[in-house]
Design a protein around this nucleic acid. Structure first.
Lengths: 147, 147
DNA sequence: ATTCGAAACTTCGTATACGAAATATTCTAG
DNA sequence: CTAGAATATTTCGTATACGAAGTTTCGAAT
């Protein structure tokens, strides 16, 4: 999976930081915007809040972000990069840029890939797939149970 | 994630079968080749055997494949689609074809996407990313532990 | 033949992600 | 002002994936 290949690629680069690819992306988005609520961040990244929630806790745990309830609205959790987080991200970005440069992927390929993926994604997300009608299932005669 | 968008797309189509996208792909590969050992299948799909192993068990559990030790070499597990599995796949493929047709993605886009992803993937997999040097970590003063 | 290494598979721990359901807080009708 | 809807986050269960470590089986070289 391309997905995991990228994960490994980044993982190698910043194993010691406690950051993973997903957390790196989160941190990057936070630094760009300064601070965001959990749901703002998840919307921006296009993942569900329940995915971001535990990651944000871990990131706060290692000190790259701060994580506090919004006094204006006690339902919200506000996420904000720390000094340390900024420093980490700066170093990480340098490494990533360097590593990508070594990668010999043209800028066109990169932007084409991104454009294509997002078109594919929105097409697939819009879709209302039809269900199939099931052929008759055989009995479980002597088979192991699923799981 | 495009990845998950596809997962949901297929999932909707064949929820009742106990198949998921990953299992559908496995079944499809198996039907194409007739039968394969676990490691042959995982190599073909480009995933690790330890990912395929539990999925194969579940698929055998619902009766879409057979899963037996190779008498020639007792280390090997041979996977082979059942009649039921063939029927399921046939129905699933029809639905998938239909759903894709509804999707309005041109054939060029599709093949371009595939080509691009595999180029990206092999570039990324070949790479030897450099590690970053870590800025000094702050103390854990009053923070929650990670996790 | 016995040992030693390689190969195939499984198990274990971890990391993303999701949907569904639970909880807490704020807002809104009446 | 209070009941109930809406919003924000968390928790829970499930599904892929991976790497590392363990088990069993096979093959090879002494």
């Amino acid at each position: 999976m391309l997905h995991h290949a990228f994960g490994r690629f980044y993982q190698t680069a910043f194993a010691e930081t406690g950051l993973t690819y997903a957390k790196y992306v989160m941190l990057k988005a936070l630094v760009e915007k300064g601070k965001m609520s959990l749901s703002e961040l998840s919307a921006r990244l296009g993942v569900e809040p329940n995915t971001v929630s535990p990651l944000a806790k871990k990131m706060a745990g290692v000190g790259v972000i701060e994580r506090v309830r919004d006094p204006e609205d006690e339902r919200r959790i506000v996420l904000c990069p720390t000094e340390y987080g900024l420093a980490i991200l700066k170093a990480a970005d340098q490494t990533v840029t360097q590593n990508f440069a070594d990668l010999e992927i043209s800028a066109e390929d990169r932007s084409q890939a991104i454009a294509l993926m997002s078109r594919l994604r929105s097409a697939v997300e819009q879709a209302s797939p039809k269900r199939l009608e099931l052929p008759e299932a055989p009995s479980a005669e002597g088979r192991d149970p699923p799981d």
